[in-house]
Design a protein around this nucleic acid. Sequence first.
DNA 1: AAAGATTGAATACTCAATCTTA
DNA 2: TAAGATTGAGTATTCAATCTTT
Lengths: 155, 155
Amino acid sequence: LSSMSTAKSTNAWGMFLMAHNRATEELERRAAATGLPPMDWYDVLWALERAGDTRLRMSDLADMMVTSRSNLTRLLDRLEAAGLAVRERCSEDRRTTYAVITPEGKKLRKKAWVMYEKAIEDVFNSQLTDKELSTIHDGLSKVVQNLRMMSAVQR
Amino acid sequence: LSSMSTAKSTNAWGMFLMAHNRATEELERRAAATGLPPMDWYDVLWALERAGDTRLRMSDLADMMVTSRSNLTRLLDRLEAAGLAVRERCSEDRRTTYAVITPEGKKLRKKAWVMYEKAIEDVFNSQLTDKELSTIHDGLSKVVQNLRMMSAVQR
DNA sequence: AAAGATTGAATACTCAATCTTA
DNA sequence: TAAGATTGAGTATTCAATCTTT
């Protein structure tokens, strides 16, 4: 998504889109090639593992992942079918469902992280200086912060 | 996609993913809200418009978009149904199909760009200094360049 | 009525198989 | 046989409608 280089920004936005596109493609390619789960599975497993005893409700998880509830419902169906997570009912409020990671889920997440960590190093970190990494981090965190404010105003 | 902050890079990669996720979501939201086409439609229209008389074959277009041929076939079906592009046969080599943008397609692309340009300014450029924009551009272009070399070696 | 979650229908995407022309 | 493109089947994603519990 770009048009005739507005000169301003040397089209950082266009490069941002391209880099994301190519980099995530490479990560998914490596995951598939080694029989490891795709990034969205990893994200759910990692969110559940971090949550630990403070179990996560389906809707909280959906908000963290920035995906729709219905999409998360089906993603968790797949994780459950693969034995990596389970649903647990809540006794206090019987509308809510908790998602919980299984021991197999933890094991696979760990294994996947070994692969993803190396891939991120190869694809991203190794190509950038520490100064560049920190500028990218700080700059993009301003972008994210601004979007948070925009959607807060929206409501 | 991230794990226990490896300190190194202050997790620039994680922020990169988050920023992309939130920013593209906002752009798609604005497009839908104003009845304008999504980013992938825009990308095809813009590629076709730039190509001009040097018409693009379906497979060239797919390579430029970094999507599969079958996906592009269907995307072009939709653009054709919407009257924004047409297919043209090639007389020299009858295996190839050209995709060509229509006048309505050009008009809509232009209109969409007005919206996207402002959105990119609001969401991205306005949040970053010129120095940050150029660091992001140059850094990520190294990432893309490296991925090109990796996939070249692959073959 | 509203919150939490799921379901059905429509749409989009991916892989392998197919069709046509070279 | 291979290149260019499309199709069918299976899977994933989204939107609105639904169901249950509060």
